[in-house]
C-alpha cells in the first residue's frame, strides 16, 4: 500500500495553446492541467477548491467550453485552445463580464470568481440573451460561498446587455 513515489516519474514535452500563446514545456506526465497552469506556467488565476471535480473553482475553457482543470491531463489537450482568467481581458481592457462583476460586487473573496467568469463567458458566447434560469443552469457546477449568487446573476445579465 505504500505510495511508490520514489520511482522515476516520466516527463513529457507538451505543446499547449494557453490564452492564444503557444507554450512548450517539460512536465511530469501525470500532472493535471490545474497543476501545470499554476506551477509551470505561473497562471495562478486558476484556483482550486477540492481538486476532485466537486466545486467548479478550477474551471477553464477548453475550445471555448468550461471544463475542470483539476480533472484534465494536459497531454490530452495538445492542439486545443485553453483559456484561463488571465486570457479574458484584451490588453488592459477588461472583458465586459469582468467590469460588471467589479461594478456590482459579484466578487467577494474572489476565489470562485475566475471559474465563474469563464463559465459565464462560455454561456454568453452561445446565448447572448440568457434568461436568469438559463444562467443558473449554466453556472450550476460552480459553487460560491460568499455571495449567495444574486450579484453574480445580476452582473452576468448586465454584461450580456452591454455585449449585445
Amino acid at each position: 500500500m505504500k505510495n511508490e513515489i520514489t520511482r522515476d516519474v516520466e516527463r513529457v514535452v507538451l505543446a499547449l495553446d494557453v490564452n492564444g500563446e503557444a507554450r512548450q514545456l517539460l512536465v511530469a506526465v501525470h500532472k493535471t492541467l490545474l497543476e501545470v497552469l499554476r506551477e509551470d506556467l505561473q497562471l495562478t488565476g486558476t484556483k482550486h477548491g477540492c481538486e476532485l471535480g466537486e466545486c467548479g473553482t478550477c474551471t477553464v475553457l477548453i475550445d471555448g467550453r468550461p471544463e475542470l482543470s483539476c480533472l484534465s491531463l494536459p497531454i490530452q489537450l495538445q492542439g486545443r485552445a485553453i483559456t484561463t482568467v488571465e486570457g479574458m481581458a484584451s490588453g488592459s481592457e477588461l472583458h465586459p463580464l469582468q467590469t460588471a462583476f467589479a461594478e456590482l460586487g459579484a466578487a467577494q473573496c474572489g476565489y470562485c470568481t475566475p471559474g465563474i467568469l469563464l463559465s459565464a463567458r462560455a454561456l454568453l458566447e452561445e446565448n447572448a440573451r440568457p434568461s436568469r434560469d438559463e444562467i443558473r443552469e449554466a453556472l450550476a457546477g460552480n459553487l460560491c460561498r460568499c455571495t449567495g449568487y444574486t450579484k453574480i446573476l445580476q452582473a452576468i445579465e448586465l454584461a450580456a446587455e452591454r455585449m449585445r
Binding site: 488565476g45 484561463t84 482568467v85 477588461l94 467589479a102 460586487g105 466578487a107 474572489g110
Partner: peptide, 10 residues
C-alpha cells in the same frame, strides 16, 4: 470594491 479589479482578473 477597491480590490475588485485584482479579484476579477486573477
Amino acid at each position: 470594491k477597491v480590490d475588485a479589479a485584482a479579484k476579477v482578473t486573477g
